[in-house]
Simulated scan of single mutants.
Amino acid sequence: MSTDGVNVDRRRLLIGATAAMGAVGVAAAAVPFVKSWNPSAKAKAAGASVKADISQLEVGQRAVFEWRGKPVWVVRRTPQMLADLPKNDADLKDPTSSEEGQQPEYARNAVRSIKPEFLILTGICTHLGCSPLFRPEVAAADLGADWKGGFFCPCHGSRFDLAGRVFNNVPAPTNLVVPPHMYESDAIVIIGEEKA
């Protein structure tokens, strides 16, 4: 093979420049692809904790917040609501909240909360994912004379007391879920975080 009239140094330069440009092109194409593996700002926000101001929540009322795309209820229970909770125990599937994964360890108690006055629940029925209605009235005509207040799921009739515990003989298999939470102050609860 004759190399007469061929500038070998120039050929090597062109081959090297072409290879370098190809490498730059591959890197430029790879950067957006690799960045797409990172969660979006919306996805990061969806998993982030939520600060809920409960300072204006009246006794006997419920506030709704959103965490991870789900409704989270904060109910400020009255002394009478708390006194009525043990009266439901015989009619509940899991009165002692022994089912794993339904609440953090610090909410595995008779009132299912850190502070008895405040109940914090994920507002999703454990049957098929409907959102139960807050029904705090006692002896509601449509729920019976023994109703002490709680949550009623209109989709399939599941009933929960004011600790989110499920009644017997309803479709929901387990208590309403207590999400991880902690109190930053008396007025602020952080949903989605726990004390270390």
Rank of each mutant, 00 (worst) to 15 (best):
P79Y: 03
W67D: 01
V24D: 00
A20S: 08
F65R: 00
V26I: 13
A30I: 00
S2I: 01
Y183E: 14
A20Q: 04
E99C: 01
E194W: 00
V59E: 15
T126K: 10
E194S: 13
A17E: 12
G144Y: 04
D142G: 03
C130F: 05
P171I: 06
C153M: 02
E99M: 11
V26R: 05
R165W: 00
A83N: 13
A27M: 09
V74A: 06
A52W: 08
R108I: 07
D142T: 01
I15Y: 04
G25T: 11
H181M: 03
K42N: 09
D91V: 04
V166Q: 02
T126G: 13
N175F: 04
V178N: 08
K51V: 13
I124A: 07
A30F: 04
Y106R: 06
A45P: 06
F134I: 04
A45N: 12
D161Y: 05
L57G: 10
S185G: 04
P79R: 00
R68F: 00
V8T: 15
I54L: 13
G150V: 00
R135Y: 07
T78G: 09
A110G: 14
A107T: 06
P116D: 15
R68Y: 11
G69R: 02
E184Y: 03
A63N: 14
N109Q: 04
F134K: 08
S40V: 05
Q80F: 02
A30W: 03
N175W: 08
W37V: 05
I124K: 08
P154M: 06
E137D: 12
V26M: 10
A90V: 14
S55Y: 07
T174W: 12
R10Q: 15
N88S: 07
T174I: 10
A46Q: 14
P173F: 09
F160M: 05
F167M: 02
V75C: 05
A141Y: 12
F152Q: 08
C155F: 05
P39Q: 13
G192L: 02
K87D: 15
G60Q: 06
D94S: 07
T3Q: 15
K148A: 00
E193V: 01
V6P: 03
H156P: 07
V189W: 11
K93W: 03
E193A: 13
V64N: 13
F65L: 01
G5N: 14
V34K: 01
E105K: 14
L92N: 12
E99I: 12
C125M: 09
L82Y: 08
S97T: 14
V31F: 05
T174P: 01
G22N: 06
K51S: 15
F118A: 04
F65H: 01
L128F: 05
V189Q: 12
M21D: 00
D161C: 05
N88I: 03
P173W: 07
E184P: 02
K148G: 00
P86V: 07
A140M: 14
P171S: 10
A163I: 00
D53M: 08
R76V: 03
R77Y: 05
R135M: 15
G157K: 03
Q56K: 15
D142C: 01
E58G: 11
A48W: 03
A172L: 08
V8G: 11
E193G: 09
M182I: 07
S49A: 15
P136N: 09
